[in-house]
Design a protein around this nucleic acid. Structure first.
Lengths: 226, 226
DNA sequence: GCAAAAGTGTTTCAATTACACCCATGT
DNA sequence: ACATGGGTGTAATTGAAACACTTTTGC
């Protein structure tokens, strides 16, 4: 039925928390790939690639992620599909995912060729419409963290409440009241105390918690988490 | 780069409010198209079609809508993209939109061939994965109406507060307190009274309002409204 | 003992809910 | 007059926010 070629690509906005180069505070970072051919040769772009005929959409995103960073995401969710006729010289429809990686995974990250990480709010002008896509992904992440337990996509299996708060503060870019934050998070009943405490902190040892996915109402997405 | 054909289609879940056949209450309806070829011949499916190379995604959804119902939507928004390998015998990636049509438009609806309208919560088993898609669209609509002014996509330019409430009650399937509803809606400052009142109602004439889009914070989507 | 973060208690303020009651029109 | 929904008032409840205060560790 389709007379002319329309290319189908899957790209992914990959978020990880790392210290900000100047302030040292936890901050959102993402990897970009330098384009080695026209159009937009030399520009930075989102990692991605063509969709293989035998590959599900999310699987394609996962493969791209593996290829460019060596990472497996904790949280992977479809963001949006972009298909404006004029977004590229050839007609390309891009299905974009966004992913969250945990610090333990992130530590194992190995940058592929032409891959470099950037502070999410300080990326240069990107190829195609990718700047707008990154901005949209940031907006979505910041909106969604306020009503969905995605913050745990940035955390290892066991964590303190201060670490949860650090994730929220990094994403929302504002300080949160520790006392109220604690109550609100615990009120969701999504955390279970392991009984263990984190030691060696030069102050009172904080309790360790585990995220209990079963206590959460199923979210309104086709998201994929592990 | 792509070695094998992957078809790209755009489908649309089209919502309109019409009286329920049994209770008469305002209810969500949507049009479906009967498939006239395999696979799933004879089954009902979402209206849609292949993406033309010179057509934007939303434009494709709009054309499908025009073709199957003769309608132009008041609100058109991307829902999700479905691309599982096994969702169809041939590999098809579907980008799905959802649309709201207003009663004045709806009154002009002319059903195309093999088109029939169904109560949204009483659709039969559909072709492909379209049943799940309809359910997801319903979930999204019901969630989004609680935090976004999409209800006005179901209303003509001038309306009473009772009509706004009727939309919410139809979508959410529960009665709302008229007094509190009025205050909440007016508190958004999204409505401006026209000064006119609706007459001929056998009770106190309700004031007419107009939706003022400029008073609303820009929503977090690439949605398209007119 | 002191610093520093964990954790608890309490007060204030805003928003939601429930519901009583008055208003303006057609019949 | 009275039925009907439009529209206003208000008390009770709930939840968010601000912040004082106590606890437990390392040094």
């Amino acid at each position: 039925m389709t007379t002319q070629r329309i290319d189908l690509a899957v790209s992914t906005v990959i978020f990880a928390l790392r210290p900000h180069p100047r302030t040292g505070d936890a901050t959102l970072w993402l990897p970009l790939v330098r384009r080695i051919r026209e159009p937009h040769e030399g520009r930075w772009a989102l990692p991605g690639g063509p969709l293989a005929p035998d590959e599900d959409l999310a699987a394609s995103a996962r493969h791209t992620l593996e290829r460019t960073t060596g990472l497996a995401p904790r949280h992977l969710e479809q963001l949006y599909s972009f298909g404006a006729v004029d977004r590229s010289p050839e007609r390309v429809v891009s299905i974009v995912y966004w992913a969250l990686v945990r610090p333990d995974e992130d530590a194992r990250a190995i940058d592929g060729d032409n891959v470099e990480w950037f502070v999410a709010d300080e990326v240069p002008e990107l190829a195609f419409d990718h700047s707008a896509i990154v901005q949209y992904a940031l907006d979505r992440l910041r909106a969604k963290i306020t009503y969905s337990p995605i913050a745990y996509g940035f955390l290892t299996d066991e964590f303190t409440l201060a670490q949860v708060r650090e994730v929220y503060e990094a994403v929302l870019r504002r300080p949160l009241d520790p006392a109220n934050f604690r109550r609100q998070v615990l009120a969701t009943h999504a955390l279970q105390a392991t009984g263990a405490h984190l030691t060696g902190t030069s102050h009172r040892p904080p309790a360790l918690y585990r995220f209990d996915r079963t206590q959460i109402r199923p979210a309104l997405t086709f998201e994929e988490s592990r």
